[in-house]
Amino acid sequence: MVEGRVTRGTTGANRLRRVDRWITQLPVLRRTHDPFVVDLGYGASARTPLELHHRLSLVRPDVEVLGLEIDPDRVRLASEQLDRWRSHVAAARALRSARANRALRGSYGAGHVSFALGGFEVPAPGNRRASVIRAFNVLRQYDEHEVARAWQLMVARLQPGGVLVEGTCSEVGRVASWVEVTAAGPQSLTISLRLTDLEKPSIVAERLPKVLIHRNVPGERVHELITALDRHWQFNAGLSVYAPSQRWIATVTGLRADGWPVLGRPARWRLGEVTVAWDAVAPLPETGLRRMPRS
Rank of each mutant, 00 (worst) to 15 (best):
V276L: 13
A277H: 04
V181F: 02
R265D: 14
A124G: 12
V63P: 00
P201K: 06
V165D: 10
A243D: 14
S97H: 03
K200S: 14
S295Y: 11
V2E: 03
R47G: 02
G9L: 06
W22G: 01
V274D: 10
H33G: 14
R194D: 15
R157P: 04
T190S: 15
D143S: 11
A282D: 04
A130R: 00
N14L: 13
A267M: 08
E3N: 04
A110I: 03
F136L: 09
V163I: 09
R17K: 07
D258E: 15
L239K: 10
L29Q: 03
P27R: 06
L52D: 08
V274M: 07
V138M: 01
I226L: 15
I70A: 08
G9H: 06
A124I: 06
M292C: 05
S45Y: 00
P35F: 00
R30F: 07
R31D: 14
T32E: 02
S177H: 03
D197A: 14
V172I: 11
G264V: 06
Y242V: 15
G167I: 04
R157H: 07
L95R: 13
P27E: 08
A150M: 09
G67V: 06
F120H: 11
Q159V: 12
I133T: 13
R129T: 08
G4W: 00
R294L: 14
N101F: 05
N127G: 15
V241M: 09
R5S: 05
R268E: 14
R268C: 11
C169Q: 07
A280M: 04
A44L: 15
Y42S: 07
V262A: 12
P35L: 01
R5K: 08
P285T: 06
L195P: 04
R231T: 10
R93C: 11
P244G: 13
A44Q: 15
R247A: 09
A148K: 07
D62T: 07
R60Y: 00
V181N: 02
T251W: 02
F120V: 04
G41K: 01
V147G: 05
T196K: 14
F136T: 08
I249T: 13
E286V: 02
V252W: 04
I249K: 08
Y242I: 15
E144I: 11
G9V: 10
D20Y: 04
H223N: 15
A110V: 11
E146I: 07
L263W: 03
I191R: 06
E206P: 00
P261W: 05
D83N: 10
R15C: 02
S245Y: 05
G288A: 10
F235W: 05
